[in-house]
Design a protein around this nucleic acid. Structure first.
Lengths: 133, 133
DNA sequence: ATATAATGTTAGGTTTTATTACATGAACTC
DNA sequence: GAGTTCATGTAATAAAACCTAACATTATAT
């Protein structure tokens, strides 16, 4: 836990996600309509995607390319989510605290600030493998 | 090597970098004027910052907060760069191939695509510690 | 042959960013 | 103390990126 939070930090605007996933804006918004992704929003209503969101879009694209349709993708992601939830529930029996997105961002912002202290080659964490190989 | 490339992928627009660093747009642009950061640009001339750029801005902010002025920061970063260069030169004697930013993005895009293949819990690489703790 | 699903395209409006110029306060210099 | 310089704020204007909504298109399934 905690790692998940970091992967959920809203960072990327539409344009970047488009080039990262090679999906059209139309597609991405369509998938959002169907609740396959739930990007955050800025105050000005612009979408902001997290690592997890991009991750998920890449999975979706993969399935699309393999001929899976919306319904199928929904099921697959549903199952995947359940598994994740179950795993978390079993490995750690922690009560999930409800945080507003705003609170979350604030929290992480300060974490980031704290982190930026010249510890350049410090311990590595956070599985960014999907993005960086 | 390769890791560096990933950290240099232009990803973040001004707004995100502002909230990530708690610096004003004016400040960030000012630091760019003074060559402390060199964000990439979109076709439409918008700045795009990489992990390394944000990283660097956090260092700059740190120094600013400690009362270091532009000149001082320049020196520090200069030295840091030299050290890095030297380390790379000694540990691996690889000829640095020149790649245009465009080529770089293309390359990484395809890497990303390739990466998005359900290997969720695969090997972790890329030191994102500055951003994720 | 129609209906549905997934995506493209276009239009009009809003938000975000870029550039440039001018303003301000703090720290120095003389 | 008056004048510089440094670092940042603020404002105006233009352009880019993004939003929603509507309609068009293409492929699939019934």
């Amino acid at each position: 836990m905690g790692d998940n939070i970091r992967r959920n930090m809203p960072l990327f605007p539409m344009g970047i996600v488009m080039s990262l996933t090679e999906l059209s804006a139309r597609q991405i918004r369509y998938y959002e309509e169907h609740d396959l992704v739930r990007p955050a929003r800025t105050d000005g209503n612009r979408r902001l995607f997290s690592f997890n969101d991009v991750d998920r879009l890449l999975e979706i694209k993969e399935m699309i390319d393999q001929g899976v349709n919306m319904a199928g993708i929904k099921k697959v992601l549903q199952v995947a989510n359940q598994q994740e939830a179950q795993q978390e529930a079993t490995t750690e029996s922690v009560v999930k605290k409800e945080l507003s997105d705003e609170e979350l961002r604030k929290l992480l912002k300060s974490e980031l600030i704290q982190a930026g202290r010249f510890n350049r080659t410090s311990l590595r964490q956070g599985d960014m493998s999907r993005f960086f190989h």
